[in-house]
């Protein structure tokens, strides 16, 4: 019986053009080389690619696309998480890592403080709202709109009185936005105002600040126009977006509609330096028309 079986196998192998024994040898050598590979680990001088370096506008991951070119072109207009493909019912590894990286960046932007060295290097003095720490800031928006008593005194002491324009910087909900944009945005505004020969007060930095704090600052400095450059609540596209809120003779308790806003200032949105030049012109118009927000038609 056994002999019979062996003969059959030999016959099959012969028909498959394999001499007996060689199949087994092949399998054995494959196993051996796999073991050898596993035992010799290799250290490489390299990096795993940084998922945040991927340009989402050009990444196209759909397999067997009907019209890849058309979809890729649509994608090039905005950094949306489209055409990222799928693995079964789930996201692919790369897009899901990107998503988590973006989410982490957003969280970092909110929870981290602006680097004090950066603030000092910009030549700003720092004051604080009535929030003692980040937790209070995030849970008590009302306190983020009020300056501490000490802050009021510092402004009174250090700032030019009754300037035409008072500009200051605040962390808001993104410390990353301050670090990324202020060094281009603020000089852009100042140079624009200089070209229009408009006088500017002393700039400074407000820690734990909400937009509404500008009203109190306007009252203290007596500025005609007050402008705050403040970090926007981060999204998953960028954590570096900044807004400028600008108001003519802002007062505590005034309607929100009196603020003019220029938002989406970051390197892939409105380029900071050009946004600064634009803000300078808005301020100029505001001074001419003596109005801001919905009262001012730009």
């Amino acid at each position: 019986m056994e002999k019979n079986l062996k003969a059959i196998i030999e016959q099959v192998l012969r028909e498959m053009n394999i001499t007996p024994g060689s199949g087994a040898d092949l399998a054995a050598s494959a196993v051996a080389s796999a073991i050898e590979q596993a035992n010799t680990s290799v250290v490489e001088d390299g990096f795993i690619p940084d998922v945040t370096e991927v340009d989402i506008k050009t990444q196209y991951l759909v397999e067997d696309a009907e019209n890849k070119e058309a979809y890729a072109e649509l994608k090039s207009y905005a950094p949306c998480r489209l055409a990222i493909g799928k693995a079964g019912a789930r996201h692919k590894t790369d897009p899901s890592l990107q998503f988590r990286a973006a989410h982490s960046a957003a969280q970092d932007a909110v929870f981290n403080d602006v680097d004090q060295d950066f603030v000092d290097n910009m030549g700003f003095f720092t004051i604080q709202t009535q929030c003692e720490n980040k937790d209070v800031y995030l849970t008590r928006p009302d306190l983020g709109r009020k300056l501490s008593d000490e802050a009021v005194d510092v402004i009174k002491e250090k700032c030019k009185k009754n300037p035409t324009v008072q500009i200051y910087v605040s962390d808001g909900l993104s410390s990353a936005a301050v670090a990324a944009n202020v060094s281009d945005l603020l000089p852009g505004i100042l140079q624009g105002l200089q070209s229009y020969k408009i006088d500017v007060g002393t700039p400074f930095f407000v820690k734990y600040g909400r937009v509404g704090a500008m009203d109190q600052i306007s009252e203290i400095t007596g500025a005609d126009v007050t402008c705050v450059l403040i970090g926007e609540r981060p999204g998953l596209i960028t954590a570096e977006s900044m807004s400028a809120y600008i108001a003519y003779k802002a007062t505590v308790g005034m309607p929100e509609a009196r603020r003019t806003v220029v938002s989406n200032i970051h390197r892939s949105g409105s380029v900071p330096v050009e946004a600064g030049a634009h803000i300078a012109e808005i301020i100029k118009t505001m001074l001419e028309k003596k109005a801001s927000g919905t009262d001012l038609k730009l």
């Binding site: 852009g188 140079q191 624009g192 200089q194 070209s195 020969k197 380029v271 330096v273 050009e274 600064g276 030049a277 634009h278 300078a280 012109e281």
Partner: peptide, 17 residues
Amino acid sequence: TDIAKALGHSIQVKLQN
């Protein structure tokens, strides 16, 4: 590139308008 306003301002300031 979208830099005309900033560049224009800069030149105006440097040439004192």
